[in-house]
Amino acid sequence: MRRIKYFMLTCVTVGCMALTGGCQGARGEGVAKEKSEESVITEASRDEKGIGKEEIVIVDQLGKEIVLDGVPERVATTIMPFPYIYYAVVGNSDHLIACNPSSLLAYEDSALKYMYPELAHANTEFVDTSFVVNIEELLKLEPEVVFQWNYMEEEIAKMEAAGIKVVALQYGTLEDLETWIRIIGKMFDKEKRAEELIAYFHDSVGEVTEKIDTLSLEDYKNILIMSDNLKVNGSGFYEYYVGKSGAVNPAQDLSGEALNVNMEQIYQWNPDIIYIGNFTSMQPSDIVGNKLEGQDWSVLDAVAKGQVYKIPIGGYRWDPPGVETPLMVKWLAKIQHPQLFEDLDMRKEVSDFYKEVYGFELTEAMLDEILNDTQDF
């Protein structure tokens, strides 16, 4: 709780975010239902179960207003990282009734399965991994609201034509993540909780950037983030944690993700460190052991020094922006600048984070699952 107390003393400009106990106290039925002044749900509007009954108005990332009759009890999402962000804000809940099948694939490999067993029962038959919805299957679930990507315009129109309320979300930036957290917070009467999470996020990352700011750009590491074999991520993706951790992406002149490149280009970049994303089955040993047919990785500095890592899975994959991005920033900084972060114990950081953010105590075996599979050679 040290960081939370520190934030209360130093970040008063955020306003009214009484963090003491906040990140741990948002779990269970006994959670205090304190709200910001902007909340449209009043204590008088609650029934005996504590569920809000007055209208809730959400503005999504298409600028569209969605009016709900109260806190929804039947929620579906096509968006893969949504369940663990939902859990961080809301806690254990049977209200998330359906999700993307890819979410449950990640769930089985993640720490979320220990914290949120209810999610295992979520329906995945209504949507495929490309976010296309089967309306007939979705209607059977009788959702009160569905979350969908903002660029899936035809899918949104299809659901709305069937009388389903849809909240459109946008992916990519830290600001987008904060918007997700605030939308979830407002929808589920957790606005104070949402602001606590956002404040904790910035406070935690700030511990890293305070040290990174002492470096010159010449000290930054040249890192390559691979989404799959000979596919890299360029500018516009993950720039936040690359810069915050004291690194530069040699593919930053390219725009987009999962961009096809050849070995000649990778030789030219010659990265200090290679990170392999968690949306691919490719492992560090495939590169270090030169197991990829027709490719010779042995001449790269990163390979010669054994600096090839698999990005971890915590509550979800650490690749995209999420509530565990502060851990991603710290993990990267520790690898890239070991002397500067000599005192940074990632096992303790992850353990403390889970206690403070999720109110959950990881076992040593669970910590091993998160951190020990990053190198397999």
Rank of each mutant, 00 (worst) to 15 (best):
R2V: 10
R3Q: 08
V12N: 08
V14Y: 02
T20I: 12
G28F: 01
E29Q: 09
E29H: 06
E29S: 12
G30W: 08
G30A: 11
E37F: 08
T42Q: 14
E48A: 14
K49V: 08
I51P: 03
G52F: 00
E55I: 06
I58F: 07
Q61R: 03
E65M: 04
V67Y: 05
L68V: 10
V71W: 03
R74L: 09
P83C: 12
P83W: 05
I85K: 07
N100W: 06
N100L: 09
L105P: 00
Y107K: 03
Y107A: 01
S110P: 11
M115L: 15
N123F: 00
T124M: 04
F126V: 07
T129H: 07
N134T: 11
K140Y: 00
Q148V: 15
E154R: 12
E154K: 15
A157K: 15
M159K: 05
Q170N: 13
D176N: 15
D176Y: 13
W180S: 02
K192F: 02
E195H: 08
H202P: 00
S204R: 11
S204I: 07
V205R: 01
E210F: 05
I212F: 09
D213Y: 05
L217M: 10
E218K: 14
L224K: 03
L230A: 11
L230K: 10
S235L: 04
Y238W: 14
Y240L: 11
Y241R: 06
G243I: 12
K244V: 04
Q252E: 15
D253I: 09
A258N: 15
N262Y: 06
Q265P: 04
P284K: 01
E293A: 13
S298P: 04
L300S: 00
L300D: 01
A304H: 14
I311P: 04
G315C: 11
G315T: 11
Y316F: 14
P320G: 04
G322S: 13
K330W: 01
A333C: 11
K334E: 04
Q336F: 14
F341A: 06
D343K: 14
L344R: 05
M346F: 08
E349I: 03
V350K: 01
K355Y: 10
E356Y: 10
G359P: 07
E361I: 02
L367M: 08
E369C: 05
E369S: 13
N372I: 00
Q375F: 03
